[in-house]
C-alpha cells in the first residue's frame, strides 16, 4: 500500500537538488521500516544474537549461551544476496517535457526515483549500476556498492539532461551484452511509440535470472492534453508541427493514449516485465513500493 506523505510529494522533492539528501528524506524519513535493511538469515558471516522465536531453526540456537545464561538465543548471519540492481534511464528530449500541472520534468522525476532505488538497494548490500541513454549512451556506471559509489551515481544523475531522440535498439543491445547474472533491471522512460519495439529488447526478462520493472513516467498533459484553446504543437524529437484545438481533439487523444498504454502493458507482460505507469505529479511512494516488492520477490 502506498505511503501518502508530503515528504514523497514531487512538488517538495523537486526543489531538492542533492540526491543524497533527497534519498535520505524519502527512504529514511518517509519510509521508516517499510524496507528491511540488510537481510539476516543464513550466511557465512555472524551478524548478531536475537531472542529465540518459535519456529526458528534449532541449528541457529547458540547452545553455549544457553548453558551459561539459561536463555535461548538464535544466531543471525549477514546474508550474501549477490543481487545487482541496474537502473536504466531514457534521457531523450521528450523526457524534458514539463506541463503546467507538473512540478518537474519527466526526467527529473525519473532521476528522483532512480536515486531512491539506488539508495535502497545500496542499503541492502546490492550492487547498483546506472545506464542512461538517448540517441547515444549518456552515462554508464558499472554495478558496485558502497557510499562512494552511491555518490558517483547521484552525481551522474544530477548531470543528466534531456536531449536527442531515443534509440532503444542500439542502446539496449549494448546494455544486454553486459548485464550481469541475477539482476534487477529498473527501466525508467516515457516509452512513447515503443510498445511494439521494446518488448523484443526486454525479452531477457523471461529468464529466471532477471527481473525487469518498467516505470513509465508521463506528464499529466500527455494523458489528457494541455488546457488551452488552441496550440501549435511541435514535436520535441522532430520537426513535425500540428495546429489544433486541444478541447476539440481531447476525447480522441485520450482514447488513443489509453489504447497505447494498454498495448504497452500487454506486450511487456508477454515478456514477463512488470509495468507501472506514473505521472510526474504523483507521490513517489507508489513507485517505491513496487520497487521494494519486486526487490524482495527476486530473492
Amino acid at each position: 500500500m502506498p505511503v501518502e506523505t508530503e515528504l514523497l510529494d514531487p512538488v517538495h522533492l523537486a526543489s531538492i537538488e542533492d540526491y543524497s539528501l533527497l534519498t535520505r528524506i524519502v527512504v529514511d524519513g518517509a519510509l521508516p521500516g517499510i524496507h528491511r535493511s540488510q537481510r539476516h538469515g543464513r550466511g557465512s558471516e555472524f551478524f548478531q544474537y536475537r531472542e529465540y522465536a518459535s519456529g526458528d531453526d534449532l541449528k541457529l540456537v547458540d547452545w553455549k549461551v544457553y548453558a551459561k545464561r539459561g536463555e535461548l538465543v538464535s544466531k543471525s548471519f549477514q546474508e550474501d544476496t549477490n543481487l545487482t540492481c541496474y537502473l536504466v534511464l531514457d534521457t531523450s528530449a521528450s523526457m524534458g517535457y514539463r506541463g503546467s500541472r507538473s512540478p518537474c520534468t519527466k526526467l527529473r522525476y525519473a532521476c528522483m526515483l532512480a536515486a531512491c532505488f539506488a539508495y535502497i538497494a545500496n542499503r541492502q548490500g546490492d550492487r547498483v549500476g546506472l545506464f542512461a541513454y538517448s540517441d547515444e549512451t549518456k552515462a554508464w556506471i558499472q554495478p558496485r556498492s558502497g557510499t562512494g559509489h552511491m555518490n558517483r551515481v547521484f552525481t551522474e544523475l544530477a548531470g543528466l539532461e534531456a536531449e536527442g531522440a531515443n534509440d532503444h535498439r542500439s542502446n539496449w543491445d549494448t546494455l544486454s551484452a553486459s548485464l550481469p547474472g541475477k539482476s534487477l533491471v529498473v527501466f525508467l522512460s516515457d516509452f512513447l511509440e515503443a510498445e511494439e519495439e521494446l518488448p523484443e529488447h526486454l525479452r531477457f526478462a523471461t529468464s529466471a535470472r532477471y527481473e525487469c520493472l518498467c516505470l513509465q513516467t508521463l506528464d499529466p498533459d500527455e494523458i489528457d492534453l494541455p488546457d488551452s484553446e488552441a496550440l501549435r504543437f511541435s514535436e520535441m524529437e522532430g520537426s513535425h508541427e500540428i495546429s489544433t484545438s486541444p478541447p476539440a481533439i481531447r476525447d480522441d487523444y485520450t482514447a488513443g493514449m489509453n489504447d497505447f498504454l494498454d498495448r504497452l502493458r500487454d506486450n511487456l507482460a508477454s515478456v514477463n516485465v512488470e509495468f507501472e505507469n506514473l505521472t510526474t505529479d504523483a507521490h513517489l511512494g507508489h513507485a517505491l513500493h513496487r520497487f521494494l516488492g519486486l526487490r524482495y520477490g527476486s530473492l
Partner: peptide
C-alpha cells in the same frame, strides 16, 4: 509553437 513529447495522437482541427 508549443513543444510536446509526441504528436502521435494529436490531429489537426
Amino acid at each position: 509553437r508549443y513543444l510536446f513529447p509526441s504528436l502521435r495522437f494529436i490531429k489537426p482541427s
